[in-house]
Design a protein around this nucleic acid. Structure first.
Lengths: 198, 198
DNA sequence: CGCTTGACACTATTAGAGATTTTGTCTAGT
DNA sequence: ACTAGACAAAATCTCTAATAGTGTCAAGCG
């Protein structure tokens, strides 16, 4: 398989996945028809099957793509803020809140929401459950790099706070993403920077 | 209506509610039959209707009782720890985690979980939504009393942390209630006690 | 009175048969 | 490498009849 064919195929996969994403957003996973996906992607139904194998497999590929994109986004945001952990956290949290707000699918994955329109998740043992673990690990590594002077236990505490508070604010938002991110970063800074009292 | 009749009636209501609680736990709200409730409570079906009016009304009464009991429990736990906020928070969180663990109904209310076996909540505008708000307010008042030297903003931050982290750990537990409560109290202490850096 | 019992209409839930879609595969054609 | 059409098998919808449950009434009992 040549390089060229590979890139063609990749763009084809992406077109199909894009179509699927839009249709799932409109009608939910249950209302998704392979025929519609094919049509919207400008491709034959058969091609979808040869490329993905089955509707379920297409679903898996879809959430895997979304998850990977999200994780890449987080990585990018974090890397873009060098050693300023506070700024990194603020930006990362805001990015996550915004993503969850306008990507129903990722919101469902992040909050581990079952049932509802996201019947999609019903059978996704793959890279969807470990999402939060991966994000936590990434944030932990970033924290270790950006705040080497903080002891490990405090860093752990802080990272757990970021993740849990962020998810909490996705499920039950009270303010804008900016304001919330700012607030969470503030909390987390305190958790990390205060040595154990008493 | 005499005092005596009142207490008789109250105990009758309680017996019926107890029966309903057990049956809901077994079969879910959807699987609950008024006839079974009456039978288990040792009461006629008609009595249930004269007392509560309808199945839905009985459901409301049930969750209201559970919510009130929970709130009373929190109040008691908090009051039992005088001015030691840290101890109070630890005990309160542990109480909440334990309650959620063995009271499916309250767990559903606390986490605002919709659908599932708790189809009960589908139509409860009453004292179920404000639960977290009430608990938050109680904790806030308690904090103001136990930690007067901490500025209000820091207290707000800390209270929000307790509530959100507790709910988060109900939804996704990683350790025992004791360990988790201890951890949350530690985090919250840091949030409250650290003056704003930079 | 306060409760039980049995009877009742009305409504919601369930079960099954049949029609209709959709999935997933195959084959021939471009 | 993809499209197009045809197809069996499986899933989903639809409608009907039967069943079960809710909510109300009136009669009876201590």
């Amino acid at each position: 398989m040549t390089r060229y064919t590979e890139s063609i195929r990749a763009s084809l996969r992406d077109r199909v996945l894009d179509a699927a994403y839009g249709l799932v957003a409109d009608a939910g996973w249950g209302g998704l028809r392979m025929a519609h996906v094919a049509e919207r992607a400008g491709v034959s139904r058969q091609t979808c099957y040869t490329e993905f194998g089955s509707k379920d497999a297409l679903g898996q590929a879809l959430v895997m793509r979304e998850v990977d994109r999200f994780l890449d986004g987080i990585r990018e945001v974090l890397d873009g803020h060098g050693s300023d952990l506070r700024a990194g956290v603020t930006a990362g949290v805001e990015f996550t809140l915004r993503t969850a707000a306008d990507n129903e699918l990722l919101k469902a994955v992040i909050t581990s929401q079952r049932g509802g329109d996201g019947e999609l998740m019903a059978h996704l043992t793959t890279r969807s459950e470990p999402l939060l673990d991966t994000a936590t690990a990434m944030l932990g590594a970033y924290a270790a790099h950006a705040w080497p002077e903080v002891d490990e236990y405090s860093r752990e505490l802080a990272v757990e706070c970021v993740v849990r508070l962020t998810v909490s604010n996705i499920v039950q938002p009270v303010a804008s993403p900016e304001a919330t991110a700012e607030r969470i970063a503030r909390i987390v800074t305190r958790v990390a920077l205060l040595a154990e009292p008493e």
